[in-house]
């Protein structure tokens, strides 16, 4: 998918959002129609107009003149691996608990990112978990997810 197409899709999406947002303000309670509802309407209108203007402009600009943006990752395989690993990690936090989930996530991600020697992997993992345990759990008394499965 070309960059220009992505841009146009986003703009079209935001334009739809603006219209929906504008229409939704009708359901606000009557006594805020003059205050918060009109604020939201103003936002919706501005966003709609700006998106429409940008769509028109990008139409006129034609293809190819958008200019290249930031390069993505040079290693798509690792990029996707990391993304999948974080998503799985986030989803596992609640059922498995913070410490078990992290004890798997850290070494797994390190290996996926290209670490091979076991010593740094084990040491870093243990070090990070120890720091978290001391600073978050002991000193600041943050209640980390305990896990609901067990």
């Amino acid at each position: 998918m070309s960059q220009r197409l992505v841009g146009i899709l986003i703009l079209a999406g935001l334009l739809t959002l603006a219209v929906l947002l504008y229409r939704s303000t009708a359901s606000y309670p009557a006594f805020v129609q003059g205050s918060t509802a009109s604020y939201v309407r103003f936002l919706a209108m501005s966003m709609g107009i700006l998106c429409a203007a940008e769509l028109l402009l990008s139409w006129r600009r034609k293809a190819g003149s958008g200019g290249a943006t930031e390069e993505g990752s040079k290693n798509p395989r690792r990029f996707w691996a990391l993304l999948v690993l974080i998503v799985v990690y986030a989803l596992a936090l609640d059922p498995v608990g913070f410490f078990p989930a992290s004890a798997v996530f850290l070494p797994a991600t390190m290996v996926a990112m290209g670490a091979r020697r076991p010593l740094p992997i084990v040491l870093t993992t243990a070090g990070i978990l120890a720091v978290v345990h001391v600073v978050f759990t002991k000193l600041l008394e943050v209640q980390l997810p305990k896990g609901t499965l067990f």
């Binding site: 990391l82 974080i86 990690y89 986030a90 936090l93 913070f98 992290s102 996530f105 850290l106 991600t109 390190m110 990112m113 290209g114 670490a115 740094p120 992997i121 870093t124 990070i128 978290v132 978050f136 980390l144």
Partner: peptide
């Protein structure tokens, strides 16, 4: 390889 997992963990935390 070591930095990314650590930063991701602290970000989630």
């Amino acid at each position: 390889a070591l930095l990314i997992p650590a930063v991701c963990l602290f970000s989630a935390l």
